[in-house]
Amino acid sequence: MVNVIIFSVCVYFATIGFGLLINLPRKALNMAGIVSLIGWLVFHTVNVHMGGYLSADILGTFTVGILSIFASRYKKMPVIIFNIPALVPLVPGGQAYQVMKCLAIGNYALAKSNLIQVIFIAGGIASGFLFAEFLNQLYLRFKTYIITKKATR
């Protein structure tokens, strides 16, 4: 439990640090940190307690996608401002590094299994964004449908 709290603080500060590197607007830094933190908490909970890094990554990016849509409406800023820094704690940095290291020292079997993990995680991240975007568009359709129905009545 103590570990999770320390990790959460770390994720928050890592997001803000990455925000400094890609020059996020100053008003968006705190919100981006919170979005990233919640996304990572979902990722961590699913990864540890329900098993499977793939579903964890899908659900984590899905949460990030939904939350950044809300945050962008609230702050009136583009969605990618909250998407990009929140993605950083979810990228398969460790596995990608293992691929290169195993290739360098000549352990091709381990490199292959790590590479497959990297590809799966990348697919998971993409599909998480896909689901979030899908829900967003459904919501927009529903809203315009309600508005037109009210107007015609």
């Binding site: 320390i6 990790f7 603080v9 770390c10 994720v11 500060f13 890592a14 803000i16 640090g17 990455f18 925000g19 400094l20 590197l21 990572w40 950083v88 704690p89 940095g93």
Partner: peptide, 12 residues
């Protein structure tokens, strides 16, 4: 910022 990213994500 780079220090924060590296040090904290290394822990995570």
């Amino acid at each position: 910022g780079a220090f924060m990213v590296s040090a904290t994500l290394e822990i995570v």
